[in-house]
Design a protein around this nucleic acid. Structure first.
Lengths: 205, 205
DNA sequence: CCTCCATGTGACCGCCCGGTCATACAGCTT
DNA sequence: AAGCTGTATGACCGGGCGGTCACATGGAGG
């Protein structure tokens, strides 16, 4: 947690520091991100940074936390509809909204992607925490799908979770790939989700 | 490419160096792997390393190349059957065999995983190259699936490629996770592939 | 005007990194 | 014995890193 000094700062200065930290953690994963670079870009002394935060990890956790709060808020409208739509509609809305987030806030998006790819031991604990949250969220939607009958009851739940998680991560990693065509990307997301819904094997109906 | 000096070395010494390089690149991604650590562990002078290789990247490329050759050889029996089995059987055999590779050669496996997660610009070119190879291989199998009718002709090919690639990466990343139960993992792999084959939505048949 | 305390500073520390180079050595040729 | 060639060595270099610390600054309270 940041020190009291940081929260005493004018909001403007807090945000100034936050913005430059986001820039660096968007560009590099935690281990390769440079504190020196952040303070240079932000135009403050390195010593000041250590008046605000315990150490590099403290700053990093603060940044990741804030970015995740921001993204959750952005996805709120989708969650609000969770009881009015079926599993497949929900998934489609969820990923399309995530895609809009990535487009509108590419640096925040990159911070999150870097966070998930991190190998640092201390950071991995936080990742497991986030993974569990996702897991609960997804398990809830999946349960609704089973109850309402839109999902085949014979489905292996663990496998379903695994596949959706894998595809979600790949979709999200791919959002800012240089060859992604912005206009048609929603169509692509829907094609991917439709494949998961229908399967590859032809249906007799 | 390694310098001539390296290939003049007795095979035993070449392999000694290779083994310790694999260890380090299995433990850390390229950027964080330490040449100093490799030479210390291998018990040779740092200067010697630069008699054998141009620089760190040269060594890394050599290691990744050799590891990939090794894995390809291991997967050869699966490829040999590619015209005798359908797409779904092939996928199942392919991933189960990859799983065996990861169990038998965990360090080689980790080198490959680290390679795919690398962010270094120069390394990314090599990744794109490997990605294309995979892409061609997979496209071939997919085409066979379409021709023989086991895959729904309405399937979006790009989406199919994307999903299989995503799931493959997640499976492979997961092979050495601490909570993977070795005995039942083949069952799990099949459950995942079956989900891709059948889809989540119930079938009327 | 002086004190006090929160805030701000940047030179500096020890560490590790990839990479270099002058030098030594061993074996073969003459 | 001398010369040559390919191999081996580790002290050393410049640079970047996270983190520290003695000191400067400036506004509030007496």
């Amino acid at each position: 947690m940041p020190k009291a000094t940081f929260f005493n700062l004018p909001r403007e200065k807090q945000e100034h520091i936050f913005r430059h930290a986001v820039q660096e953690f968007a560009l590099h994963p935690y281990e390769q991100a440079s504190l020196t670079e952040i303070v240079n870009q932000a135009g403050i002394a390195k010593g000041s940074m250590y008046q605000y935060f315990e150490d590099k990890k403290d700053l990093y956790k603060y940044v990741v936390d804030k970015v995740y709060q921001h993204k959750r808020k952005f996805l709120q409208p989708v969650w609000a509809l969770k009881d009015n739509v079926d599993f497949f509609e929900f998934a489609s809305m969820y990923y399309r909204r995530s895609w809009h987030y990535a487009r509108q806030h590419p640096e925040h998006h990159r911070v999150i992607v870097n966070f998930w790819d991190s190998r640092d031991d201390a950071v991995r604990d936080e990742i497991l925490h986030e993974k569990q949250i996702r897991s609960y969220e997804f398990a809830y939607m999946l349960e609704q799908g089973f109850k309402s009958g839109v999902i085949d009851p014979r489905t292996d739940k663990e496998a379903a979770w695994f596949v959706y998680h894998a595809v979600a991560k790949a979709l999200i990693d791919n959002f800012l790939a240089p060859d992604v065509n912005a206009d048609s990307h929603e169509t692509f997301i829907n094609a991917v989700l439709s494949l998961l819904e229908q399967g590859l094997r032809p249906r007799k109906e």
